[in-house]
């Protein structure tokens, strides 16, 4: 009952369960104000994590042909072209450009590694788990592809992989069991393997502008606060932190952002809440509905036993 036991702050039962192996909570601070849209993160992620190619398509949506996070995309760079000034009135050097305002927003999106993660809460196999770093990871040798985590995530991060299974992971021969596609869900692991080896995640390593910063979450939050203060002082239009607040509907993100417009402009929900926040109320209601059904069936016998 993660969302209930500890309404905010840190993830439920973490890090106590790790005892001596507990680590500080690690995360990302993605500062979109310095992103240049080079997609080095997307590429580094695919390379390091051996994520298969899933087809190419020209969308006509600015420089974005990746479109969304999913089973085969764990970093996604969004491109937004806007007729809005980069800076508010009195913002100095760009003021003369504001006669014909145009700005290009770029944002490298990723799994938020939520403090209260809907995906993890609903996973019936225990495949999704909280690591010693406080991150949220799918164990691919456990996932049975039930698909529950997919609509549970408030951000649409996870998806089922429909690509063929690998040769060493052959389908069984029974008709019911003989599925040929991978069938499991995949998402960002915050490079769990690299963290174990003392390295930073591949995307952060590859990012040439430090738009993706990796580190202990406490430090990242401090750094983000300073950055926001600076941008506000320089009168950047729309500068705001997204997912930094441990009091939000998912208890804050482990991977949070500095945005230059409202979240929905980047395809992000403006006020995400973990669905399991309401789980106690839902079970109470279910219990009453179940009891009512019992009474209802009994009532059908009121008019006689046959």
């Amino acid at each position: 009952m993660s969302a209930l036991a500890q309404p905010t702050g840190s993830p439920a039962a973490w890090p106590d369960t790790y005892g001596d192996e507990a680590k500080p909570r690690m995360g990302f601070f993605t500062d979109t104000s310095v992103c240049i849209g080079c997609k080095a993160c997307e590429v580094a992620c695919k390379e390091w994590n051996l994520i298969p190619e899933d087809g190419r398509l020209w969308t006509g949506e600015s420089y974005d042909n990746t479109s969304e996070l999913g089973a085969n995309t764990w970093r996604h760079v969004a491109f937004v072209e806007q007729r809005k000034p980069l800076k508010l009135d009195g913002g100095g050097e760009t003021a003369e450009l504001d006669a014909e305002p145009l700005r290009w927003l770029m944002e490298s999106d990723v799994c938020k590694h939520c403090t209260h993660a809907g995906c993890l809460d609903v996973c019936p196999t225990g495949s999704l788990f909280r690591t010693e770093y406080g991150t949220v990871v799918v164990q691919e040798d456990i996932c049975n592809g039930c698909g529950y985590c997919v609509p549970a995530c408030p951000f649409g991060v996870l998806d089922k992989r429909h690509l063929p299974r690998k040769a060493d992971d052959a389908p069984l021969s029974l008709p019911l069991l003989g599925k040929k596609e991978d069938g499991r869900v995949w998402k960002c692991t915050l490079c769990y393997d690299r963290l174990k080896g003392g390295h930073e995640p591949a995307c952060a390593k590859a990012c040439p502008t430090d738009s993706i910063q990796f580190g202990p979450l406490d430090e990242l939050r401090e750094r983000a606060d300073q950055r926001l203060e600076k941008l506000r002082a320089e009168r950047w239009n729309g500068a705001q932190l997204y997912g930094r607040d441990p009091d939000d509907g998912v208890g804050g993100f482990g991977a949070f952002f500095l945005l230059l417009d409202e979240p929905e402009v980047y395809g992000l929900p403006p006020d995400p809440v973990v669905p399991t926040a309401h789980v106690a109320e839902m079970w109470r209601n279910t219990a009453i509905a179940a009891a009512a059904m019992l009474v209802g069936v009994a009532a059908a016998f009121v008019g006689g036993r046959s």
Binding site: E61, S67, V150, P151, G156, V157, L158, D159, D261, E264
Partner: peptide, 14 residues
């Protein structure tokens, strides 16, 4: 409202 090219935010169930 604003959106990202009208794209969905949450994933469709699988």
């Amino acid at each position: 409202m604003d959106s990202y090219y009208g794209r969905p935010i949450v994933k469709e169930p699988v």
